[in-house]
Design a protein around this nucleic acid. Structure first.
Lengths: 209, 209
DNA sequence: ATTTTCACTTACCAAGTGGTAAGTAGTCAA
DNA sequence: TTGACTACTTACCACTTGGTAAGTGAAAAT
């Protein structure tokens, strides 16, 4: 690996961390290079602008996610199994790659504000692939919009937990939170299965209280 | 209402909107007063500092949420019904009060960064009341940590959808997204019920694939 | 040997940041 | 009538923001 590429990687890593912690607006390019042996102008030399740097960071994460999805697709033929397994792996990903998870969530929120200005949607390929996979996975008799809604709820169940670590730790105490986290994965498996079973048994049940 | 109180309310409303759109760091106090007939120094006069203003905004939202929870508690005796109904109402709240929902999510994320510095946790009362309610609602035979995990997943299902509006609209197109939203509430009801039924039937099933 | 390219630096810049100081105009009580 | 108080303003302040300009030294290409 050429030295300049290594520099770029260092910068990307530092930027990923910084953006995930304080968001796009809360992060200054000077802050990103603070712990690196380079000046902020070196960063601008490599990436052109703050916006472009942010774009590269998001593109990197998006690619990782797409690889993850494809890996699950390879491992499981049955869509329902693949679906369940995807959520478990996605959960584990959010727990391991906390920084990336935060950043993804931030982009989701800043999307409108930032993208309205820059007209770029970095996560589109990832989300499209995800949606596509889920349409296939869920019983196709179901309405597509219906399936999307259900899927998005499960996605939310995972993501929301991941970003709430700090709040929950403070609220429950470390010990209690640790117990909660230990139960989360099996609870998640149960949730996904319950939802699928329910959909298979009676697709449109439960609309009334 | 005294005129100064009205000014404060205007400022709080503008601040809520601004913070929800660009976050704490992305919002300048000058930007908050831009569309108001006051200068930023008037804002500082009323609230002292940006941090204190943010605190008042969050406290207001937290109070509203607590009132919502208490209202559901009054309306339903049976905890399971109250639980289901709470999520539906919570969902509707997130759809109506988009600005507040965004802000809540942002605080969840910035919590660690911001609160580590200021040592204040604005949302603690709200989340504690919520957790308390859910402990009561779920079958007490279940482990407390288990219940918390399950509850948090449902909470995530609702919240995540609310903040994804911009991304989903762009990704799916307005028409498709609209259909998805129309299905969301009944899907949510189904999800909550499925999860509760499952827990009642076999509390610890589904740990293995 | 000379030119070009690359990685990176110092030196800037205008615009914006949160916040302070010192007022001004108005109300209200003594 | 005076003095305190309130709501707000203008005038600043030191500092940070993203970004530009113009270089430097080294390696690579000609």
């Amino acid at each position: 690996m050429p030295k300049s590429q290594d520099t770029r990687q260092q910068m990307l890593a530092a930027a990923t961390k910084a953006f995930s912690e304080k968001g796009f607006y809360g992060t200054s390019i000077a802050a990103i290079t603070q712990d690196l042996p380079y000046t902020k102008q070196a960063l601008l030399h490599h990436f052109g602008s703050k916006e472009k740097l942010y774009g590269e960071v998001l593109a990197g994460i998006s690619n990782t996610m797409i690889e993850n999805i494809n890996a699950v697709r390879m491992d499981f033929d049955k869509p329902q199994l693949a679906l369940q397994e995807f959520f478990i792996r996605f959960y584990r990903y959010t727990q391991t790659q906390r920084v990336e998870t935060y950043l993804l969530m931030r982009e989701l929120m800043d999307n409108k504000q930032r993208a309205d200005a820059s007209q770029v949607w970095y996560l589109k390929p990832f989300v499209e692939l995800l949606a596509d996979m889920f349409i296939q996975a869920i019983d196709t008799q179901t309405d597509e919009a219906n399936a999307l809604a259900a899927i998005y709820q499960l996605l939310g169940a995972v993501n929301y937990f991941a970003i709430s670590e700090a709040t929950l730790t403070n609220m429950l105490g470390e010990e209690q939170f640790s117990r909660m986290r230990n139960h989360f994965e099996s609870e998640l498996r149960q949730l996904v299965r319950a939802r699928l079973d329910c959909a298979t048994a009676s697709p449109f049940a439960g609309k009334q209280t």
